[in-house]
Design a protein around this nucleic acid. Sequence first.
RNA 1: GUGGGCGUAGCUCAGCUUGGCUAGAGCACUUGGCUGUGGCCCAAGGUGUCGGGGGUUCAAAUCCCCUCGCCCACCCCA
Length: 423
Amino acid sequence: MKYKSVKGMDDILPQDVWLWQELESRARKELESSGYVEIRTPILEETAVFIRGIGETTDIVTKEMFTFSDRKERSLTMRPEGTAPIVRSYIEHSLGNISPVLRLYYIGPMFRAERPQKGRSRQFHQIGVEVIGSFSPYADVEVLAQLDKLLKAFGLSGYVIKLNSLGCKSDKLKFTESLKQYLADKINLLCEDCRNRVGKNVLRVLDCKKESCTQAMRGAPNILDNMCLKCARHFEEVKSSLKALGINFQETKNLVRGLDYYTATVFEITHPALGTQDAIGAGGRYDNLIKDMGGECAGAVGYALGLERIILALKGHAARKPDRNVIYIATLGDAARLEGLKISESLKDGLALPNLVVLRDMGEASLKSQMRSADRQNAKVVIILGEDEMKEKKLTIKDMRPGGSQVSVAAELVVEEVRRILC
RNA sequence: GUGGGCGUAGCUCAGCUUGGCUAGAGCACUUGGCUGUGGCCCAAGGUGUCGGGGGUUCAAAUCCCCUCGCCCACCCCA
């Protein structure tokens, strides 16, 4: 085979695409009915948007971005995530003027140059939400409640919402320092990865699964103990409101997010069906990002869902492929073929059927093989137009469902007759 | 970047251990049996770089070396 798709970038084939369309349309319906509006930002951004936005020491920025120079030596990057571009757009177009609290959503591909594995590819798709313009804990609650509802709308069950708070910027800093101090004389007890993490992102040592590290972390300082009163209250408010709404969550004190911009509330949705990449979605607050990127100070919360991972989690009890109402027009001869085209147009115009699909045969296949393909396409009705029918200005309409019969009607009456059979 | 597994028909795979007939099966696809009627049944239809390259051998899908690709896991993340 000469050409194949680029590593980690997969085709979504015709036989699978319905599920993607189904999930996307459910998401749009769900989110728009709650006042979210879609935003579409470009695939490419100036590299600096991500360095500033995600954090220059994060793994995403240091080793996972598709970055290249254009013809004028500008450094461009294919977006590895959706939040930084949206914040860029928010500032660039003063979107805060639309309304003090802006609810945005996006659906689209993201790109990270990682080694592919189950639930992880180099081009993957996210559905994400950003609420910009509020520091209130109720924004967090609204977003989480909406997220829970969206997952249910997808038909998902068995997922777990993990919740934590990192505290505000200065809390985070203080906590990072005290962790480093705590670990200063324990470096030798940690695994190789964690020794690295101490300098780069100490918080990650908290969720290392290695026995030796978990041991060493016993007695480590707690995030909650290092949190300022305001952040502690914020977190309490989020938790009690979620409980009041009946939304189940697990408080997970070692939950840490890898992107630098997260502050205060952070969360992650995991699903057991996935394998080791078990997060189907994650998000949190990013109260400093907008200011850090050059905008006015504004609070914000958001999350992103990995569509590929949602689909993996859905395997087994996936949504049913929607039923199509297929009408197949079988023709014999050139004149009939033209007439068939006209009929298919009048059927599409005249029949107000949901999911109506009118198929026509292209070539000069025998009636037998046309009937076969009609059957394979699950046609409910076949309209046969041959020489006899042309001569008499009539049509044969066959009901393909088990026990269905076949009638001959005048050409002008097709729409009516098909409606009688199908409706 | 680091481990491990796997590459034979469009798909799922057998054959490889112990080298040897024209490299197979099921599914799918096309056509026909039924010259204008689907599903079931029957029949016929394959120029497959046996992932690629090199080596060993009279002989390689099969053994050896290299390489590429895919998958799973680490790392990281949605």
